[in-house]
Write a protein that binds this DNA or RNA. Structure first.
Lengths: 127, 127
DNA sequence: CTCTTGTATCGACACCTGTCGATACAAGGC
DNA sequence: GCCTTGTATCGACAGGTGTCGATACAAGAG
């Protein structure tokens, strides 16, 4: 049962073993790559940070189109990509649609990237 | 390039504020997106985990071509992408070229993705 | 109902990416 | 010197991605 069973985790505690501990399997790598791909665009990264840092933890699309130079359909497209990657959730409430970040997904990626302390390999840093 | 002054950080402590704390600036988003893009491919993700989890913290390219179904030039290409993103370093030692993960880069991304504990937003209803 | 505003989808385009085989370069053994 | 092995680069190709304008859908106001 190495799959995650908890819906949410305390911040700072990843759900999964850091990738530095053991090599990723093909399936895990494929799924994680899809999530990272959603983060691989500057607009999406800013959208996600805008949503996650918005008061109340969620933001209306109307709050998200202003800060960018791209068109409204493009914003909508990027939000869809983030949603399909499982990084944000969304819900229509009356006229507006609200988006929020999914902490479990972010913490999963965060935990995966945590590098271990390697006291035994000091000189390798940098170039 | 080097906005950060510290070359390395203790594992588990990101160098930057989580993106959920404040919106990313355009420049930061562009740089981070480049790093995430390097992680957005299953082969590269497995390569990185293979390198990071390898004994001694580094791996020869000869250790990396075996586990994959893709050709040697493709592996070389992916390693170059990881290196140009600052996620791994490399060095030729004699006949072989060795790669290692860059902990500072991984921890930077890890810290960025840490979701805060939002006790005030438990389910989608209250808000 | 019609009109207006907020959001999503569609179709098209230029550009980027992952992959390969062929080939070049690097280093050591002979 | 030449040959072998390890790694990188090149050139080309199919497929994917970000962007737009046009348009469709959703919901409230009048």
């Amino acid at each position: 049962m190495s799959k995650q069973t908890l819906p949410m985790f305390p911040a700072g505690e990843g759900c999964c073993a850091p990738m530095a501990r053991e090599p990723l399997g093909e399936d895990d790598a494929a799924e994680l790559a899809r999530m990272f791909k959603a983060l691989s665009d500057p607009v999406r990264l800013r959208l996600l940070s805008l949503i996650a840092s918005h008061e109340g933890g969620e933001a209306c699309v109307c709050d998200l189109t202003g800060p960018f130079d791209v068109s409204q359909p493009t914003i909508s497209h990027h939000l869809k990509v983030l949603r399909e990657a499982g990084l944000v959730g969304s819900e229509r409430r009356g006229t507006w649609v609200y988006y929020w970040a999914v902490p479990a997904a972010l913490n999963r990626l965060s935990g995966l990237l945590q590098a271990p302390v390697r006291a035994s390999v000091p000189a390798r840093s940098g170039a």
